[in-house]
Design a binder for these strands. Structure first.
Lengths: 192, 192
DNA sequence: TTTATTTACTAACGTTCGTTAGGTAAAGGT
DNA sequence: ACCTTTACCTAACGAACGTTAGTAAATAAA
């Protein structure tokens, strides 16, 4: 065969990301998914083993991408401000190159069942921990103000994790504009 | 009758907020709701006319609260920084006194059907416009940096709208701590 | 005390859910 | 040429969905 057309397996998964994003996991039926792909619902099961598997794959795939991007980004920079900005860029980068899946990652992980749910939460905590450590180091080095670290990281993630929303607006913002704007605001603030 | 116990109508709506928050609108069935209230699913319909009505009420009730709180808050302050901080406080205040419903407001409005969906989006745009105008005024008065207004407001809302998450963490943060911390970060930034 | 309203029940409606069983036709490997 | 595998189909499973109908008991109004 060699060089097949983009196969059904992949097509189904891409379509599932799109639908889970648009209608939510619980709001998307396997029949919806099948119709969008152009086959019967039962035929989906030649390419997957359950609806839940789709969600599971999406969430953990994105989780892994976040880790990888973070690790390479911060390794390349010295200094807390630069590390933080690099981490922000990496995080936004993963979102912008996985617009559907990352939306699912942020909103639909609640439908994971144990034990995956627990595993997922743990991964997320670990990932956030990376950001907390950058900020702690920054405070220790007197680069950053003595803020409440947890709250600061919370605020940063809130801002970053909503950026998928920016890409559907009509404004054509480049990724670097978004990165610059958000990290400037978070690092230097609004006040003159 | 006089002074009835907290009536069923109210009880059902409070329980619905809790369940819609925990399991999502699509992920909550009327039988789930009935069981939690302690009656049969069919009996719910003595107190409401449809599942959708519940969602509709929650979303528009919170929308109204946001408007009211915003208007009184900014009317009491002069100067862009103070107005913005007051608006932030008001916004967080509405969230913190409606923890269930505001979560539904942020995540489940997508399940509204037309024409309510359109009406909802319009209200939200108008509300955000209030924040944009504060920032525009602040820039014009040289109080604020010349930031991309839309992106700044986007970032602010992202941070504010996630605060409902803070109240379920074990840390006992007071509302004023949260307001101070977030508005300081957004106004003055992380950098020293 | 009779009457009307409210609140709950059981039973069931038609629909949709995720998924399985079993079959068919084409493609690929040997 | 044969056999296996892949990819689809139709049909159907039992369960769950939102909601309606009809009724009985309790409560309030007259």
């Amino acid at each position: 065969m060699a060089i097949a057309k983009l196969d059904r397996r992949t097509e189904i998964r891409q379509t599932a990301k799109k639908l889970f994003k648009e209608r939510g996991y619980a709001g998307t039926s396997m029949r919806d998914l099948a119709k969008e792909v152009g086959i019967e619902a039962a035929s989906l099961y030649n390419h997957l083993s359950s609806k839940e598997e789709l969600l599971h794959e999406m969430c953990f795939d994105i989780a892994e991408q976040f880790f990888t991007a973070f690790n390479t980004a911060v390794a390349e920079e010295k200094g807390s401000s630069k590390k933080l900005k690099a981490a922000i860029r990496a995080h936004i980068g993963v979102i912008s190159s996985n617009l559907d899946a990352s939306t699912v990652f942020f909103h639909e992980w609640v439908f994971l069942k144990e034990p995956e749910l627990g595993k997922f939460k743990k991964l997320r905590y670990q990932y956030e921990q990376g950001f907390r450590e950058i900020i702690q180091k920054g405070i220790a080095d007197k680069d950053f103000k003595e803020v409440n670290v947890k709250l600061a990281v919370f605020t940063i993630f809130s801002a970053l994790n909503a950026t998928y929303d920016l890409y559907k607006s009509s404004e054509k913002l480049s990724q670097e504009e978004i990165v610059e704007s958000i990290s400037n605001l978070l690092l230097k603030g609004l006040k003159k």
